[in-house]
Amino acid sequence: MGMKIDIQNVRCGYKGKVVVDGFSAVLSSGGVLCLLGPNGVGKTTLFKCLLGFLPLMAGGVFVDGRDMKQFKAAEYAKVVGYVPQAHAPPFSFRVFDVVLMGRTAHLEIFAQPGPEDERIVWECLEKLEIKHLAAQVYTEISGGERQMVLIARALAQGPAFLLMDEPTSNLDFGNQARVLHTICTLAGTGLGILMTTHQPDQVFQCDADVSLLMPGYEHLSGSADDILTEETLRRAYGIDVAVLKARRREQVLRLCQPILPETRGGGRKSQVI
C-alpha cells in the first residue's frame, strides 16, 4: 500500500515534434488525478508515454521509485492497468473472455488461463456489478456496459494503478455518472487512478487532483479548488467560464458552466409569437 507514480519533468511527442514538455505530477494510491486540457494540447500523447506506448523524450516516470523503462511489459501490466475508451474489436468475444484477457500478464508465455484466473474474473465482475453480462457478446452490449467491462479487465490485471482514457466519453448522462461513481469507489479501495477528461465538472465530482494542460507547454497541478478557477479555465480553453458554487440540502456542489457569447438578434430563447 501507499505506492506512487512519480512523473518528473517529462517531455513527449512524435518524431521531432515536442507536444508536452516539462510535465510533472504525482499519482498516489487511493487518489484520483484528472488530466484536463483542450484538444491537441497533448493529453493523449502524455497518456501514451505513461503507458509505454511512446518513448519519453526526456524526464522520467518512476513507479514506486523504479524507472518505468526497467519494467518488462508483463511486469508493468501487473502494476498499471489501462482502460481504453469503449470500442468494438473485430472479433465478437464473450464478456467473460474479454475480462479473462486481463490475466495475461500473470501467465507464463505458453500458458492458458486456469481456474484461479477465472475465479479472479468473477470477483472483478462482481465488484463492478456486471456479473449478468458474463455470457454476453462484448460487441453487442451498450457503450456504458463495455466501459465497465474494460474496467473489469484492467482490474483483473491486479494493478495498483488504473490509467483511464476519457472513461466517460460517448456515454449518456446516467452512464457517465455511473462510471464516475465506479472510479471514485475504486479509488476508495486504494487504487490510484489517472484519467483524462473533457469535463472540469468531473474533477469536482470525484474530489480529485487535477493537472490542467494549457497551450504553450504550460501546466498547473493541484487540488480542484485551487486549480480550476474561471481565470485558469479561460486561459486553457479560450472561452468564458463560470465556476459556480451551489447548495443542495447539506451538500455544496461546484460546477463549471461555459458562458456563450451573446448572439445577434437577442437572447438564446426562441421567441414565441
Binding site: 501514451k48 503507458l51 509505454g52 506506448f53 511489459a73 508483463a74 511486469e75 508493468y76 501490466a77 501487473k78 498499471v80 492497468g81 489501462y82 481504453p84 484477457m101 486481463g102 495475461t104 500478464a105 500473470h106 479487465r153 490485471q157
Partner: peptide, 8 residues
C-alpha cells in the same frame, strides 16, 4: 497498445 498494456 491494449495487448502491450495487458503485458504482451
Amino acid at each position: 497498445e491494449e495487448a502491450q498494456a495487458m503485458g504482451v
